[in-house]
Design a protein around this nucleic acid. Structure first.
Length: 305
DNA sequence: CGGAGTGTTAGTCG
DNA sequence: CCGACTAACACTCC
């Protein structure tokens, strides 16, 4: 058992309260691409109309007898391409989960509180339920009701996607482009990293992990980073996001039958939830926590400059 | 028991 | 334009 603060347990599995960021959403995207493509949507039950942008009636009407051709993603936003040419957006914000269930097999991703168990779906947090013609179901759970689903046409989808900033591991995420978004900004480097219009997909956990990896204090003014530091920050962002995706994100859970959670990036976090503990890198600093860009921010006061 | 904290995004305000 | 702040909500922590 790790010495990190625990938030709870599911069976024998410890969990931490963390929110879906790019690696978590990408993990869900990959999982759903293997499970729900081309299945006819037999019905959609909207249990909470607030979860739907643009009207629940239109949402249900569009999806019924439709199917999903492709699951795309921009930043933390999932974009399902439908057979009729429209798109369905799904944003999980802080506490959303997408749970796909077929008999006793459950594939789930998103916020990692145990808002459901393998057998009690739907739960009181299930906001929308899709039923497929093979009997399988997809649940959109969201405790705090910040997340949303929305049907949009192709034009709106393109427009939304183009408003997002450069994304780690994609071809636009170059040192030069990162330099441009940091340039002349007085805001902390962390504020730039979590600003979806500038850099997409990074949230609170990975912003801290990336700054730690780069040995840069998250509250440093973005425009004051040196050329060398920008190069290191660029490399660190790619490295952390790539590794997090490799381990299925921090919040991801993959249930086969009753138990058996798979790889979890929680074990690889270096600063998140480690305040007051000794720095794992320099072994000298004690991890500090302060508010930066309106968020709880962890860093090593000794080896991050 | 109750107030503070949790952290995403849209919207407001200076 | 830029950046700081807040509401939306539900639950845990102290």
């Amino acid at each position: 058992m790790s010495d990190r603060e625990k938030n709870g347990k599911i069976g024998n599995i410890d969990y931490f309260i963390v929110m879906p960021e790019l690696p978590e959403v990408e993990t869900i995207r990959r999982g759903l691409e293997k499970t729900i493509l081309n299945k006819k949507i037999a019905g959609v039950e909207v249990k909470n109309k607030k979860a739907i942008r643009g009207g629940a009636d239109n949402f249900v009407r569009t999806l019924k007898n439709n199917s999903i051709k492709k699951v795309g993603r921009v930043g933390k936003l999932l974009m399902f391409e439908l057979a009729d040419g429209n798109y369905m957006f799904a944003h999980m914000k802080m506490t959303g989960q997408l749970i796909y269930r077929f008999d006793h097999k459950v594939f789930a991703g998103g916020h990692n509180l145990p808002h459901f168990t393998e057998t009690d779906l739907p739960t009181k947090y299930s906001r929308v339920i899709w039923s497929f013609n093979d009997g399988s179901k997809l649940y959109f759970n969201d405790m705090r009701k910040f997340g949303y689903l929305q049907i949009v046409d192709r034009e709106k989808k393109e427009k939304t996607a183009s408003a997002y900033g450069i994304e780690p591991l994609t071809k636009n995420f170059t040192v030069d482009n990162l330099k441009k978004v940091l340039a002349e900004r007085k805001a902390p480097v962390k504020a730039v990293l979590i600003n979806q219009q500038l850099v997409s997909g990074i949230g609170n956990i990975y912003a801290d992990e990336i700054c730690f990896e780069a040995k840069i204090k998250p509250d440093r003014p973005a425009g004051k980073l040196t050329e060398e530091e920008i190069k290191i920050l660029h490399k660190s962002a790619n490295k952390i996001i790539e590794k997090a995706i490799k381990y299925g994100g921090t919040t991801f859970k993959d249930y086969v039958n009753a138990h058996g959670a798979k790889g979890n990036f929680v074990e690889y976090l270096k600063v998140y939830k480690r305040e007051k503990q000794k720095c794992l890198r320099c072994k000298k600093g004690i991890i500090s926590v302060k508010r930066v860009a309106g968020r709880g921010t962890r860093f090593c006061p000794v080896c991050q400059k």
